[in-house]
């Protein structure tokens, strides 16, 4: 893919790296994680001879990076040089390349490149504060509402750039819907919650059409049977799991192409979680879904591909199976095996 194009290196360290990386002056994103979090993990033989993917092969090897003498070999294996695994997919809906986000002077995510395919669920995992939610919010430009946030790089939906200043976010958000961490239904009736989106976008012409749309959306979200008799009651009166499914139904109602979910189950009990996960699996047939989750079991259950984020870096991307069974990077392995995070 387009991963090999030249780019600017932000720091002096990167410059040094470039000098060492003699084989490939136009090296891909290299962000040396100079201070990988120290762990108490027992020293393991660094898996330097691990089979590299094409992208990883072009990356600078950790051992050529100058570092303090005190660093051990174990540290080097946890150092981040470049995203491991295949960031692209066969049939991408959204293509993100070299996305940086800054909150004022603090860089929240660094050079993230990731594809989101059609009819697949991509899950993003990683410890708190690693930037996965920030990245997710870039995908429908929700970060616009944070005054100090700056986003650079390129995000395309069906080949169309969305980070451009002149892109209208209203139709974008109609195409890329979002479900938030905490269920946030409007303080209006259940019906109004669903009908609001279609109404402001003018998706329906008649009341009957709108009624149908509300019903199908609620059916898709698996909520219809539970609420069909009380559509005029406030959405805030539902249980937490129902509220979250209502929010999903609200998102579906505007017929988006991509649904972003920011820890949709973190406020739900296991039964409600199971229902939402089931729903996500069903929705996959029609939508592209990007989900941020703290639960690795959930990522394993619902997603086809998984991306592991760490301190603003995208460490590793791969099929869910591969990430959970054969993680290539030490950080991924540590996180998945529960050593930290």
């Amino acid at each position: 893919m387009s991963h090999n194009r030249p780019m600017t290196m932000p720091s002096a360290v990167s410059k040094t790296l470039l000098e060492h990386a003699d084989t490939n002056p136009g090296s891909p994103a290299v962000n040396f994680q100079a201070e990988a979090p120290p762990t108490d993990a027992p020293p393991i033989d660094a898996p330097r001879e691990r089979p590299m993917t094409t992208i990883a092969a072009t990356a600078v090897q950790p051992d050529v990076i100058p570092r303090a003498d005190t660093k051990t070999a174990t540290d080097s294996s946890r150092a981040f040089s470049s995203t491991l695994g295949d960031i692209s997919c066969l049939n991408p809906r959204m293509q993100c390349r070299d996305v940086d986000v800054w909150y004022a002077d603090k860089q929240a995510i660094k050079n993230i490149s990731l594809d989101i395919g059609r009819n697949e669920v991509v899950s993003m995992i990683g410890p708190s504060g690693c930037g996965k939610s920030t990245f997710l919010r870039c995908l429908n430009r929700m970060n616009d509402s944070i005054p100090s946030a700056r986003v650079s790089g390129s995000i395309k939906i069906d080949g169309q750039e969305i980070l451009d200043k002149h892109v209208d976010v209203v139709p974008l958000r109609a195409r890329v819907g979002m479900v938030f961490q905490k269920p946030n239904p409007f303080p209006k009736s259940i019906y109004e919650n669903i009908a609001y989106g279609p109404r402001i976008h003018g998706l329906t012409n008649h009341r009957t059409e709108l009624d149908e749309l509300v019903e199908t959306s609620l059916r898709k979200a698996g909520l219809w049977e539970e609420v069909k008799d009380r559509l005029d009651q406030p959405g805030t009166g539902l249980s937490g799991g129902q509220q979250q499914r209502l929010c999903i139904a609200r998102t579906i109602a505007v017929s988006p192409e991509v649904i972003l979910m920011d820890e949709p189950c973190s406020a739900l009990d296991p039964i409600a979680t199971a229902k939402v996960e089931e729903l996500i699996d069903e929705l996959r047939t029609n939508y592209s879904i990007a989900i941020v989750t703290h639960s690795m079991q959930q990522a394993a259950r619902v997603s086809q591909r998984t991306a592991y984020f760490h301190l603003g870096d995208l460490i590793e991307v791969g099929t869910t199976e591969q990430i959970f069974n054969q993680p290539q990077h030490r950080l991924t392995e540590d996180y998945i095996t529960g050593r930290f995070g």
């Binding site: 429908n140 929700m142 509402s145 209203v170 139709p171 974008l172 958000r173 109609a174 819907g177 979002m178 479900v179 938030f180 905490k182 946030n184 239904p185 409007f186 303080p187 609001y196 989106g197 402001i200 976008h201 929010c247 609200r250 998102t251 109602a253 505007v254």
Partner: peptide, 15 residues
């Protein structure tokens, strides 16, 4: 007014 309401509205594409 909780910001979640604003996010919800923006999220479904309200201006």
């Amino acid at each position: 007014v909780p910001p979640s309401i604003r996010e919800a509205a923006l999220g479904v594409g309200a201006s």
